[in-house]
Amino acid sequence: MLRLTFADYESLRAHGEETYPHECCGILLGNNDSAGNSVKQVIRAGNTRSDSAHNRYHIAPEELIRAQREGRKAGLDIIGFYHSHPDHPARWSQTDFEEAHWFGCSYVITAIEQGQARITNSFLLKGTSEDEKAFEDEALEIDVTGVEENVASHAAKMSVDVREGDKT
């Protein structure tokens, strides 16, 4: 299972909308425990595949190293990556599979249709070697705690505003 906050979920989906019709990509920092990977920070990365950015992505190793250093300072590891599929399903492609080398990491893919984020899926890279690696569908658990508070706060404010309006 991959756990992340609603804000992070929205952030990586928004990234795909912003870069449409090109693929976006980024790095997920967090922790791994018996329940799976937990995202604590989403880092946007540049797509170096300017020759074919509509259907390819590549993150510069320098960006990965920076993210790894940043994570280490905060007690976090690289636990996954995300990218978008412009006008293409949110399923891993043969290219995604061949280029996947981070065993135990989550690969999140968002389908962007005509500039709008649609389905977001996650796939866990299982195995310990190139010969036996496999992508496995991975459930997404989105923490909406903050969202509920914001909605409640917004609703309370609206209620106050309505009451204030009643006075006038």
Binding site: H58, Q68, A100, Y107
Partner: peptide, 23 residues
């Protein structure tokens, strides 16, 4: 010294596998 595997991919069909994978 830092060892860092590459990160790449995309929706494109692989040049190594001309037949698209249905998944």
């Amino acid at each position: 010294l830092t060892i860092i595997p590459s990160i790449a991919g995309g929706s494109a069909y692989s040049s190594k596998s001309p037949v698209p994978l249905s998944c």
